[in-house]
């Protein structure tokens, strides 16, 4: 492993900025977040980066490393042998400072999703096989890397038309809960815009939790919309069997 690492880190704010180079000593097992902490402690104490756990549990340190959307705490510097490591903030959200972006839009949308409405009171009786798929969705750490990479949001900035993969997964976990009674299909078709997803699966690729966002979450939601709006007879049959 090289003894010295070169990082090129975006420094700037809402009005703009540019990358700045830092050279730091390499430590075995170092992740990019460690490298940024070294810079903070020794070279630029005002370098802004969000982080909490450094263990890939909290989803705070999302950024773009050499063009890929990743968690800083889960990306090792020795993955970039003899390369300059370019670190930039998530592209889809407005920069506050350096690597910190304004992700408040996501929290606004989370608030607009109808909450869990169980049919009965706890304790519930549910089989493991019936909750396996929603447990997959509940692994989400809300890093918003999927939101960042979704081209509907990233290239087209269509935040008013489509709420993005994170919100789809949140709705999928509620819709597929064995005891939930609320109906979010109208919302999915309407304001949340599930139809805008054209299944490029970029979100699935970047998910640090390995959630199969498109295949297991978004496509079944699209099917629910199709059932209700475009297959009234099938929808009726399913309703009677519910």
């Amino acid at each position: 492993m090289a003894e010295e690492i070169t990082l090129s880190v975006f420094r700037g704010d809402r009005s703009g900025g540019r990358e700045q180079e830092y050279k730091i000593p390499a430590i075995p097992g170092m992740v990019v977040l460690d490298a940024l902490h070294y810079i903070q402690a020794h070279q630029a104490s005002d370098l802004a980066v969000r982080w909490n756990c450094k263990a890939a549990h909290c989803g705070s340190c999302s950024a773009e490393i050499n063009g890929s959307a990743k968690l800083l705490c889960k990306t090792r510097v020795d993955d970039y042998e003899d390369e300059v490591i370019h670190v930039r903030p998530m592209h889809t959200f407005p920069v506050i400072k350096d690597l910190v972006t304004d992700v408040s839009w996501n929290y606004e949308k989370l608030r607009q999703i109808p909450a869990f409405q169980p049919a009965v009171n706890a304790p519930f009786t549910m089989q493991q096989r019936d909750v396996d798929r929603i447990q997959e969705f509940r692994k989400c750490i809300e890093c918003f890397l999927c939101q960042n990479i979704c081209h509907v949001l990233r290239e087209h900035d269509a935040k008013d038309a489509y709420w993005g993969p994170r919100m789809m997964i949140r709705m999928a976990e509620l819709e597929m809960h064995p005891l939930d009674t609320a109906d979010r299909v109208d919302l999915l078709k309407g304001a949340a815009g599930v139809g805008y997803c054209n299944i490029t699966k970029c979100c699935t690729v970047v998910c640090p939790q390995g959630i199969n966002i498109t295949d297991n979450g978004i496509i079944p939601l699209k099917e629910r919309v199709a059932d209700k709006y475009f297959d009234p007879l099938g929808g009726l049959v399913r309703k009677m069997h519910k």
Partner: peptide
């Protein structure tokens, strides 16, 4: 149990309990 009521999904026993 209150968390389960609010949407937490714990691992299950063979008879479907937490």
């Amino acid at each position: 149990l209150e968390l389960e009521q609010w949407g937490a999904v714990f691992d299950r026993t063979p008879d479907g309990k937490i």
